[in-house]
Computed example of a mutant assay.
Amino acid sequence: MQVAVLSDIHSNYRALEAVLAECEKRQIKDYLFLGDYVTDCAYPRKTMELLRETERRWNCKFIRGNREEYLLRHRVSGENGWQKGSANGALLYTYQQLLEEDFVWMGTLDFRGTQFYEGGSQLSLCHGSPWETRGRLMQDKNLAVRVLESLSQDVLLCGHTHCRGVFSYRGKKLVNPGSVGMSPDVPGRASFALLTWDNESWQEEFCEAAYDVQAAVRELKESGLIDMAPVWTAMTCHVLLTGEVLFPRVLARVQELAALKGSSSEDLEQLWEQAAAEAGMPSYF
């Protein structure tokens, strides 16, 4: 038995298409999706259509990610400060592209769960951690130990950090399949994992699929996303092409600059531009 594990698609429908095609070649019929399906890349509806079609064709389990939570909260609260610009323009772009049926579907998802396959042991699933969607288990081994100790299952599947890997502790293990849509492990390719039951335990295999990354980059501009969130979208482009993730560093610097200069002393987008330049990000658009 083999199960495909996919996480962090981030609207990169081209990468998702490539992964699904590779899984079909391998005759995979069982899929686990760990959240962050949309935001950051262009045309999120295409990603949603692929996911719903996969759900109709195969045995799928979906977990909610923090990006789905952001969108659902915005839907409930209405106008909560999202506007054009790198601070949250990419989120607003995605929100405006999605349909009512997409939000209804997202609302049915839990941020954690379990999955059992006949003949194999039960799997535990989450996006960040079983306690909250933004947990960073691979970067916080103390947290990972506490989480694994709290679980009855031997395997916990998680996403969020985009970095694939395995952490083992006292016969249990944590597996992150990496990111389908914005992979730092294999730039320009889509990362996912396969789990195989060997009659005693689940064994993981990290896989990748090639896709047209240049087309994905072009669509960042053609879709109008670059206009909604200029620096943020340029950083997305940077991840797609190089694997280097600048978001945390640039965001932290923007916050520092805003505190130093005052929120009304300068256009906020100029602070994003300054922070990105200080981080050494090339000009892509």
Rank of each mutant, 00 (worst) to 15 (best):
R73V: 14
R134N: 13
L174V: 08
Y31A: 08
L92H: 03
T133I: 06
Y169W: 15
L251V: 12
I28F: 09
E219T: 01
G159I: 06
E205T: 12
S77H: 12
N59H: 15
C207E: 14
V175D: 07
G78F: 14
E256P: 03
L6V: 05
V5A: 10
D40R: 04
Y211I: 01
Y31S: 08
V76E: 06
R146G: 14
P187M: 12
E200A: 13
D36Y: 06
Q97D: 09
G135A: 05
V147M: 10
S223W: 04
V166M: 05
Q255D: 07
E101Y: 14
V231R: 03
L194I: 06
N199Q: 13
T114N: 03
A234W: 01
W272Q: 01
K25Y: 04
S152Q: 10
E222S: 14
T94Y: 05
W272N: 00
E100G: 14
S150P: 04
V76T: 02
S86I: 07
Q214V: 08
R134I: 07
Q27Y: 05
D40I: 00
E69V: 06
R218L: 10
R189T: 03
G89I: 01
A210D: 12
R26S: 10
A252Y: 05
A258R: 14
N59M: 10
G113Y: 13
D267T: 05
K172Y: 04
A216S: 06
G171E: 00
R164H: 09
R64L: 13
Q83T: 15
V239C: 15
Q214R: 15
P177Q: 03
S168H: 08
D227L: 08
Q270A: 11
R112G: 02
L195G: 01
N88H: 11
A259H: 07
C158P: 07
G178S: 06
G120L: 07
D227E: 15
A209H: 02
D36N: 11
G113K: 14
